[in-house]
Amino acid sequence: MNRLSWFNVTALTFGFAFLYLPMVILVIYSFNASKLVTVWAGFSTRWYGELLRNDAFLDAAWVTIKVAVVSSTFATVLGTMAAYVLVRGGRFLGRTLFSGMIYAPLVMPEVITGLSLLLLFIGIGLDRGVMTIVLAHTTFSMCYVSVVVSSRLVTFDRSLEEAALDLGCSSFDAFRLVTLPIIAPAVISGWLLAFTLSLDDLVIASFTAGPSATTLPIKIFSAVRLGVSPEINALSTIMIGIVTIGVITAALVTKRNSLRQQQEEQAAARVA
């Protein structure tokens, strides 16, 4: 049953080749000495040097990171609250509307989200810039955070919270001292997801950024519209490298933590 047939081996080989070859080729060509991106002229790190001297890219990268840190932090707080309301909130007026508003942004075309937010910002006379991008990113990524966190809350043993309340905790303390440490891995992965979504976003940022703020994806998009560029290859390689290291580290850490936490939770439940 678990023996890999030739069919399964072929499917996996071609499948993963299809997923990874384009990125591997991109990485290889980022070390190409030639300005002509399609002609191989020997190994060189020249484009990485050019990239580091390009102030426009560095500025955009800085704006992007600022936006991503701030918006993912807001999104994590709001998304965790929303998840708590969805899973533990019980019944309240407009609950269906609330859960609809959590799930709808996940499948909404970005062009529509971007357009509608821009029209709102102009309607209320808010100047477009870093702040409007942060507001926009917080709104769509809080929904992703709340989906991640609520899937953890659903499996979480409620009697632990009740035990804390019985022992005299206020409900806020019970959340802070019992619930939060247990759902922390989900909250952290929610933050990471929000952070990468914000880093990647081109469409919504294009609508909500004013002339004063340019993010890296906007910069990359306007550069590659005209064709392949060796500097963008170098930039892409750096971004792929950071993500790869980040995801692998996160996977290892969460695996270890979730094992430990499950054990603790079970032990605590036995005692309670």
Binding site: P22, I220, S236, M239, I240
Partner: peptide
Amino acid sequence: WTSFLIRVYAW
């Protein structure tokens, strides 16, 4: 987790 824009650009 890798940038959507970069994955399209790679092609």
